[in-house]
Amino acid sequence: MLEALLTYKFLQQALIAAILSGIVCGLIGTYVVTNRIVFLSGGITHASFGGLGAAWFWGINPIWGAAVFSIFSALGIEFLTEKTKLRIDSVIGMLWTVGMAVGILFIYLTPGYTPNLMSYLFGSILSVEIIDLKLLAGLSVVTILFFTLFLRPIQFISFDKEYIKTHRINVAIFRSTLLILVSLTIVFSIKVAGIILIMSLLTIPQTIAATLTSNYVRILILSVIFAILGSIAGLALSWHLNIPSGATIILVLFAIFVLTKTTIAFRNKFRKS
């Protein structure tokens, strides 16, 4: 692969995309998992498909449509559950499927050549373009800055937002900002793992990290490392075996998870006896 890496520009871009999405998904995924908003994030991801289809229909870069849809659905879910008596999981389920439905209709109505849907649904890291890398790089800088500046507020608000509210601190604005970062992370990483598979980058590395430590900062760092590791290893494996990259990345991450879990289980057993 090394030789190919030097020859093919698209492979270099894929590698950079793996690293950058590993950074944002590792950090944002920790927020998602510790706040127990995995289902919410899944809803945002799928709702973004509506924007993708609409952008296609009007001939805009799909990523912009997806970004607008995901941000609005994220803030919509937050608003609807705070201001009305609707149940949060029902609202998520609704926006999840409505977004998908809108997307399907727009793609059906788009005249002429049917675009390559599969790469958006299941990811295709080899088709990453320069604009995707620029967006991911920008988001990485913003996310790293945000987590460095606001590490403690993020941790404390995630742990017990009610208590922080009693300190007259505007928790709602803070959480909305983080939800926008969640939305952008998902949309900008769609090329890497696809709408249907992207949740894995937000959950598996964090679950591996959490089995190794219960220190918040270490979980953040380990999540980033595992996300990058899994993406690169998955990319290499899919290149060699000529199989889909998105699915391979996830299976590699899952293999690391199983390996870590069993190693720890064995070690504990060994220690006891």
Partner: peptide
């Protein structure tokens, strides 16, 4: 949430949010 990654000392420090701000 008893699975949240936070230490005892960190929980106590979170009581200083009003003083510290963002």
């Amino acid at each position: 949430d008893t699975t949240f990654p936070i230490s005892v000392l960190e929980v106590v420090l979170s009581g200083l949010m009003a003083k510290k701000g963002f």
